[in-house]
Design a protein around this nucleic acid. Sequence first.
DNA 1: GATGAATGAGACTTCATTCAT
DNA 2: TATGAATGAAGTCTCATTCAT
Lengths: 221, 221, 221, 221
Amino acid sequence: MREIPLMHPRRRPRQARAQATVDAIVQATARVLVEDGYDRASTNRIAQAAGVSIGSLYQYFPSKEALVAALVEEHVHRMLDLVTSALDDASPEELPDSARVLVNALIAAYRLDPKLHQVLCQEVPKIGELKRIYDFEEKLAERIRHYMTSLRHQIRHQNIDRAVFLLVHAIPSVIRAAVETDTEAKNDGALAGELTDMMLRYLVYVPSSESGSYKVTQLSA
Amino acid sequence: MREIPLMHPRRRPRQARAQATVDAIVQATARVLVEDGYDRASTNRIAQAAGVSIGSLYQYFPSKEALVAALVEEHVHRMLDLVTSALDDASPEELPDSARVLVNALIAAYRLDPKLHQVLCQEVPKIGELKRIYDFEEKLAERIRHYMTSLRHQIRHQNIDRAVFLLVHAIPSVIRAAVETDTEAKNDGALAGELTDMMLRYLVYVPSSESGSYKVTQLSA
Amino acid sequence: MREIPLMHPRRRPRQARAQATVDAIVQATARVLVEDGYDRASTNRIAQAAGVSIGSLYQYFPSKEALVAALVEEHVHRMLDLVTSALDDASPEELPDSARVLVNALIAAYRLDPKLHQVLCQEVPKIGELKRIYDFEEKLAERIRHYMTSLRHQIRHQNIDRAVFLLVHAIPSVIRAAVETDTEAKNDGALAGELTDMMLRYLVYVPSSESGSYKVTQLSA
Amino acid sequence: MREIPLMHPRRRPRQARAQATVDAIVQATARVLVEDGYDRASTNRIAQAAGVSIGSLYQYFPSKEALVAALVEEHVHRMLDLVTSALDDASPEELPDSARVLVNALIAAYRLDPKLHQVLCQEVPKIGELKRIYDFEEKLAERIRHYMTSLRHQIRHQNIDRAVFLLVHAIPSVIRAAVETDTEAKNDGALAGELTDMMLRYLVYVPSSESGSYKVTQLSA
DNA sequence: GATGAATGAGACTTCATTCAT
DNA sequence: TATGAATGAAGTCTCATTCAT
């Protein structure tokens, strides 16, 4: 239905100057995308914003889509790195803490560059490599699935995949909305608490009312 | 930063034939948008798909943006109508049933035209009137807020707005993902059950197993 | 090795105005090609020369190559028509007269638009439909082969195809050179005589001087 | 109408290594021209094919035109050399043998690099020095004119220039066509014989069968 | 000398929009 | 009113050429 253009960078820069040019171009792409939207982000405008000639842009990226794809890849990479390292650093073994860690990591990821994320999700046509903006959610799902599988005995679901599917779509979308609208911007703590609460109530057998705030150990019975 | 062009239909058609033309154009817009994506959906192509001349198209819509805006409005209207009437028809007073009714209504709404919804959300630049694709979620929030306020005494949250915010973003995004990926397409029942479960667990104080009027474990049955 | 672009006219004009536009474009193409050469003949320049907007040009021709291809086709058609009708009109049955008729027809054909023919042969890359400039020589060969086959008994060759091959390349190239250099421009008669002479001497068994119905030496008189 | 840029090599290389570089560039030009056509033969591509940097290319050739002109010159030179030395080596004094020698020399010349010759004749714009591809035919004409003048007494024409004009365009074009189409590729002998036959029949007073040193009918044997 | 990064004019092409018929 | 021919600004991309390293 649609053509898939060449998508990979045209030339690996060998000199430091060239690498600086490539970086400037990618960062300018992000800037222009955020400021003007995808439709108005012409390659000429991007080159101008990067302070390079249009020829230089095309020396490194064979098409507009390749350029945006490079940006998508970088952005996804940064978000994933953040989540991954947060999970790696903390790796707690008790579910309530785990949940909070995960939620906080996601909030941090979506705080990285919310406006860029928004444009990438909401305006860039999802053709060819540009689909890879969804890599974030897919790889996120993998990590969460793995994470939750390791906590399997504390979770009430037998079909973990289904639970992961729900959470992987529910939680980020709430975070995204909160981050985008800036409604809750001032108070990530409340957001994190609420989401963690939702997540735990969804995943875990609920504790009895008289005792602890949550008793996970009973829940896993 | 961006211009806001004229947005409203240029003339209200008074004859039935004219109304038919307008409808044909709007429906053709939906078709072309879904099949070719926003970028390739030129006004000429749309006119051709509608079986009218490009001149006629511009007789009824002063710009491409007005045309797409009309489509957005119609689409949002149809989705909202579905939710509203579902809630009106059922209006139960007990929360578990209410939740299920709401979830089912939302599933029905997102099933109306998922591909169009996707293009409208993911490709159409969010300028001017085209932002109104978000009207759906805003108005949905209002309705849910109202609905839930009427059930306030069954809900554990004091800050209802925050709970609504969460649910209004969490639930539709799960539904949208399920509907789009067709992963759960064959089984709306399971999806509805799971979402209802999540919603109730989130909203309701779960009583201890011996004393409560209902148990979460029953809900997920 | 090379891509073959779309080549056929995009839209059949329905109004007289449109046909006039198409004609103006094709004629302007010929003019610009002759004056500026293929490399400098940009579509913008052609549109300007035709007195139409660049958009109009692309309404009827999907690419520069399609445009030139249309010109090639028209040009070949006109040349072939000229040769064909000349041969049809004259259809003599004796070889000397036939040869002269053929040579004269070819001279007329190459006089139609020598400069255009030159550019088309010498600068236009022979990709895709643009190869069809050679259609002229191929179809010419067919006609001559047919023509000469009907005169077979007056020709000394057993392998007529080989003789046709020679003549079909030898005669036009001499004419083209003569027409292009304008060296012999003032005197087509001499050129025709000389070529006819060459042709007959090549084709015909030369009888001995006392017995033959004609002698080669007489032919060149 | 067209600008004539600098055309001569920018610097005469004095070191062997530099000469090797120049040669590599010119040969790469030939290769790229043949493989990709003139339009796609960019200077960068040529430099790459030559294994040198684009900077080095411009160190030796001030422009693309100068580069192609150097190739044209070399190619013409090689073709002319071949013809000249063939004629010098053989220099027979009787016409039938002379004719055959000439035809064979031409076939050899056109076999040198037919594809390059084709591109040079059919695609390269004939501006400035690039016209010099026609030098071959002009200088060829001179040589043939000289050659035939020395055989004047065996030729029936009083206006030798006219005969030379005919032959100089007729014979090469047949050879070129044969060589290009590969139709006759396997059998240069037949081609040579046929062309020699045509040439002699055209040039020579045909003697009567009883008295002449040769008869045309024998020539075609 | 050699390298290759950088340049930018200009090519081709699209498409929202206007307007004569 | 309906048609579709016409418009032209603006977009993507190439490539001959320059110049700092």
